[in-house]
Amino acid sequence: MGAQIPMEKQTSSPNPRDIREASGEDRALLSARGVEKVYKKGPAEVRSLRGVDLDVRKGELAFIVGPSGSGKSTLLGILGALDRPTSGKVWLEGRDLFDRSDRELAMLRRSKFGFVFQAFNLIPTLTALENVLCPLIPGGTAREAAQDAARLLSTLGLGERMKHKPFELSGGEQQRVALARALIGKPEIVFADEPTGELDSQKGGEIIGMIRAMNRDIGVTVLIVTHAVQHILPGDRVLKLKDGRFAEDAPTPGGAPAGGKDAATKGGA
């Protein structure tokens, strides 16, 4: 899965990670401290997150794992500015993420963040190409943007499927369209919530491979929530969430991962 992602940032070769290291730029891109989220479910309160601390550096690729209901998706939603925490702080490039209006957060999601969801979440009335351009529709989709979108789809192997509607595409193809949509705004961080959840093992592997390629080739930071631990490789950072807190945060030692779910839920370490 060595797909080359055709983004402007790709031109900053050699590897952006190397450039950052060379320039000494090593502070966290995204940080969270004491993040809590409490939901009201009827009369009861559900504490989904119970004080999460996290630092994510630029260009990093990290997996967030944990059992169902451990708060993985909730955390991803908060880090991606889709939802506000009940308490705690999140900083993006040193600035409080939620010290912004809803409009500013939306603009941030459009320009700095990209999202890939488990259920693909494409707009059914739009073609693959239009779905990719969807984040840019409000600002007007210029010809260059359409060319970028077409290039992205071609790179992801969908050159012949651009005019197809989501229902005419397979699950793997739909997820690749979603991936292209996440990349069209040239984001700094891509949040992937169970991107392989509705795919078979092989297609899931292809999608994770593409995500790794974009992390490697264009230096985009990636946070992946997943149950599919077979896709975690040695050296990957794995954050294990349990009962709304991080139980472990460590790189997978060489040869440890891919051993199945058990290995990952133990933090992959």
Binding site: D102, A106, M107
Partner: peptide
């Protein structure tokens, strides 16, 4: 609802959705 959720997630503002 899901469609509007997606649009907001990918960066559409309240005004854009209203429009």
């Amino acid at each position: 609802r899901r469609e509007f959720g997606i649009l907001k997630a990918v960066g559409w503002t309240r005004t854009d959705v209203m429009k």
